[in-house]
Design a protein around this nucleic acid. Sequence first.
DNA 1: GCCTTTTATCGTCACCTAGA
DNA 2: TCTAGGTGACGATAAAAGGC
Length: 271
Amino acid sequence: MDGMVDENGTVDPLAPSPPPVAISSVGVVTQQQLVASTNIVHLTLPASNNHAQTQVQSVIQPNQQSVIQTAANIQPVLGKGNVILVSKPNSVIQTPQGSLHALQVINVVETTASDDSYSDDESPKKRRDLLTRRPSYRKILNDLGGGEIAVIPAGAIQISSGEGGQSIHTLSMTNSGTAGAAIVQYAQGQEFFVPVMAQSGNITSGGGEDQARKREMRLLKNREAARECRRKKKEYIKCLENRVAVLENQNKALIDELKSLKELYCKQKTE
DNA sequence: GCCTTTTATCGTCACCTAGA
DNA sequence: TCTAGGTGACGATAAAAGGC
């Protein structure tokens, strides 16, 4: 997912890698759905002195100047829309008790209860699609090893491949009446990709054949390009959604921090 | 179970743009 | 100017979802 990190904020490449994802046993973890596609993991650490709990809050904003400094390399745990609100050592947030609390990032949990816990390729829908969808023409072509494009007239063909003509394999072509490629369905369950002559289905000689071949090549490339384009588009949209989630959480955390600072200020003022 | 609607994916065309 | 690649728009198709 190249570029995703940049969209959400750059990550210092020199910073040490974060520890493996896990949650400390002292923390109480609650999970709330703030945004449709985003899970917020809210860590609430029990205060050591009393029963009051210190809310652990922070903002993930690696590349911004703020009173809230981010721990290095928080970003990598933000995948799949999960946004983790964690504490950081240098936060200016004080506890209601007035003592500066060294809130530490313990670890980060990755949720398991939502769809987001699936990897991109493993969501239920994706997996279902993998089971039910016919592979794309290109995939079929690639799976069959490839780039060879045979030009044959449209229509059904019979191939005798067995001994004494025992197994005659029928090839039936779909889309054969239209310009462009056709799927040839092989009787034994295989399919392969065969471009069909654009005009009448007849192989023309000379310049016509060349033109047809050029056209097929262009269509093939454009098909690939369209696929790639859609993939990038999806990635971009996902990236934007992640960014929205991150910014919303930053906003929320900043509001909370402001509230805390106000409380602290009022408290110190009254003393 | 059948029909209709919605959603996702794909291929193609047309257009635009950058580079040769 | 030509060409290749990227992308929006459109229609076709299949599957899921929902209503009956």
